[in-house]
Each structure stands twice: as structure tokens, then as C-alpha cells.
Write a protein that binds this DNA or RNA. Structure first.
Lengths: 173, 173
DNA sequence: GGATGGTATTTCAGGCTTGAAGTTTTAGGC
DNA sequence: GCCTAAAACTTCAAGCCTGAAATACCATCC
């Protein structure tokens, strides 16, 4: 660490400030898009984002997941997952299956109805995202994915968010 | 619109899929960082993210803002802002000021105490962000800001999020 | 084989957010 | 000057989420 002369200190400060600006823009884009998805999911699909998210991680794992695995991948509390799965089960979209060797746990799997419903939702969601990100071309998208991968790597490695390493495949709408 | 031959259709589909992947990574980074900020703000500063956000938009506008302007910039409901400002006022960090020509409205301004508290919080927050985005160099940061600006532009222009054009300066932690 | 500690899940109280009234006030047409 | 529509704000019920118990169960160490 030899950032000991003035020029370097100034560069550090400028970079820090620019990173902050980046965070503000990252945060704004994500929340505008997420709010819009939430709204459309309610309005057009009579569903919710948390329910979609749970269905997404289940759909990605045909053998089903334990409650704890779901809450780890989505980074929400275990109690929250209980409620969401309860509702999915009530609607016949998911069901709990006993785990042979562990009577504490249960696996959650999508029913056929749940798989069908999710397939429809997933297609609609992709078209929404494609619309909202419509003015980013392939270069833009690749460039951002490259950087976000590095960022996510660091976030997973550092203490924070360390529980969610595996949740990238289908974890968020 | 002449994406009528197979090759182009295939490219469109691939781009759509890649945009979806980008969204998932965007969403994950933003939520990991935001959750961590929320946690640290509680743990280390005895504050909350919504309160910080309100103070941020107020600090950026020394003349103060109306309730409605705050809720527009932060994209939260008016009722929510009422509650947050109530709490800030209780703690002496902000106060409501009557608007001369409109007895329905009130301007909200930070008190001196509020300005001081925000200055401290803002510095800490910048260091946190600088830490969390630490493995992105200046090229990365600039590259992402460039693209996010275009994205935010499109999001503001389209119907969704149209209320929040001006909230980019200091609007989100 | 019983105690001890840890794991999987649920329950629940408390806080945050929204959306839908409700109140007061302003603005515009007539 | 009224009357209607709309705006600014507040209140409130309902839903979501968290974190902290509580419950039930597994596993390990003596």
C-alpha cells in the first residue's frame, strides 16, 4: 500500500466518488425495473415477485429444494419462505415432499400445474425485460455482464452475501 | 421492422436471453449491496435506508422540498414519506416549513443538526460503497456508468418510472 | 444410550410500504 | 362569487419481510 503521494490520494478520492455515482445509477435502474416487474406481475398475471422468484429457483432444480436452500438462494428469511410456499401450495403450484432420512426437513417441488404456470410467466417476464433493456445492444450487455460478474464475485467472496453464491442461475426475476 | 429472416430472428432471441441474464446480475448485485447498506446503517449508525434517502434528497436541495417532491424523487408513496418525515422531525433532523401561497403544502428542510448528521452518514456510506465496489477500476466504472445512463434514459422516457427523472443526483444511497 | 449442541422449520410480533379513502385547500369555468 | 375538479397531505388497513423465539429432530461425544 503505497498510495502515499498527493497525486495518488487524489486519484483514490476521485475513484471513490465515481464508484458512488455508479452505485446510485445501479440502484436506480434496478429499482425502477423491479418496481415495474412487480406492478406488471400483479396487474397482468395475478401473481407477485416473491412468488415468481420461489417458482424460478424450484423450476431450476427439478428434484426440489429444501426450505433453507430456497431462503439462501433468494436471500430472504426462512420465515418468509414458509409463507410463500404455503400460498403456492394452497394454489396447487408447489408441494412439500418428505425427506426420507430427515424428518425435520421437507423438499419443495413444483407441481405440473406449477411448472406450466411458471413457463408462461417466465416467457412473459423475458419479453418485459427485453423491452425495458431494449436500448442496450449486444456489446453493452456483454460489457456490463463482464463487470457485474467481477462485482458479484467480490461480493460473494467478502463477508456480505456469502450465503448466496449459487443463486445466480435463476434467482431473481 | 424487417427482422424477417431466420438469422435475424435467432439473433433477436439470443439478445433477449442475454438481456435477461444481465437483468439477473444487475438485480443480484443491487440487492446484495442494498441489503448490506441497510444492515450497516442499522448496526453502526442507528439509522435506516429510507431515512437516509430522504435526508439525501433534502441535503441536495437547501431550499427544501415538498412532500410530493420527495415521494416523486424516491419513488415511494406519499403516505410513506409522511411517516419518515414525522420521525426525522421528532429527532430534530428535519422540519416542516409553511409554504406562503399554498396552505395545503409544506416544505421540508434539514435542520442544522440534520445537515451535520447527514454529512457524517454520507461520508461513511461513500467509504462502504468504495469498499464494496473495490474490485472495479476506473475503466469498469466509467463503462458501466455510460451504459446505465442510457438505460436510465430509456426507463425515464418510457411510461414506467416517468416520475423520477430528477432523482438521480443524490436520490439513492 | 443419554446429554449436548446444532439444524430445519414454523410462529409471531414489530416495522416498512402501498393503495385507498378522507380532509383541507387551490384553481378554473360559468 | 359559486361549484366542480384537482392537488397536497394525512390516516389507515392490509400485506410483506425480518429477527427472535419456539418446536422438533439429528448427530456426536463421552
Amino acid at each position: 500500500m503505497d498510495s502515499s503521494d498527493e497525486a495518488t490520494l487524489h486519484q483514490d478520492a476521485a475513484l471513490s466518488r465515481t464508484r458512488l455515482v455508479l452505485w446510485q445509477k445501479l440502484q436506480k435502474s434496478a429499482s425502477v425495473i423491479e418496481d415495474e416487474l412487480r406492478r406488471r406481475l400483479r396487474r397482468d398475471c395475478d401473481s407477485t415477485l416473491p412468488r415468481f422468484d420461489v417458482m424460478a429457483v424450484l423450476d431450476a432444480t427439478p428434484d426440489g429444494l429444501r426450505m433453507r436452500e430456497i431462503s439462501d438462494r433468494l436471500r430472504v428469511s426462512a420465515g418468509n419462505v414458509t409463507g410463500i410456499v404455503d400460498k403456492l401450495a394452497q394454489e396447487g403450484l408447489a408441494k412439500r415432499v418428505a425427506v426420507p432420512d430427515d424428518r425435520r426437513a421437507s423438499r419443495v417441488v413444483l407441481t405440473e400445474k406449477g411448472q406450466g404456470a411458471f413457463a408462461v410467466l417466465a416467457r412473459i417476464r423475458e419479453s418485459w425485460i427485453n423491452e425495458m433493456l431494449g436500448n442496450l445492444n449486444l456489446d453493452d450487455v456483454d460489457g456490463m455482464i463482464l463487470r457485474l460478474d467481477r462485482l458479484i464475485d467480490a461480493l460473494d467472496t467478502d463477508e456480505f452475501g456469502a450465503l448466496a453464491q449459487k443463486g445466480t442461475e435463476n434467482g431473481g426475476i
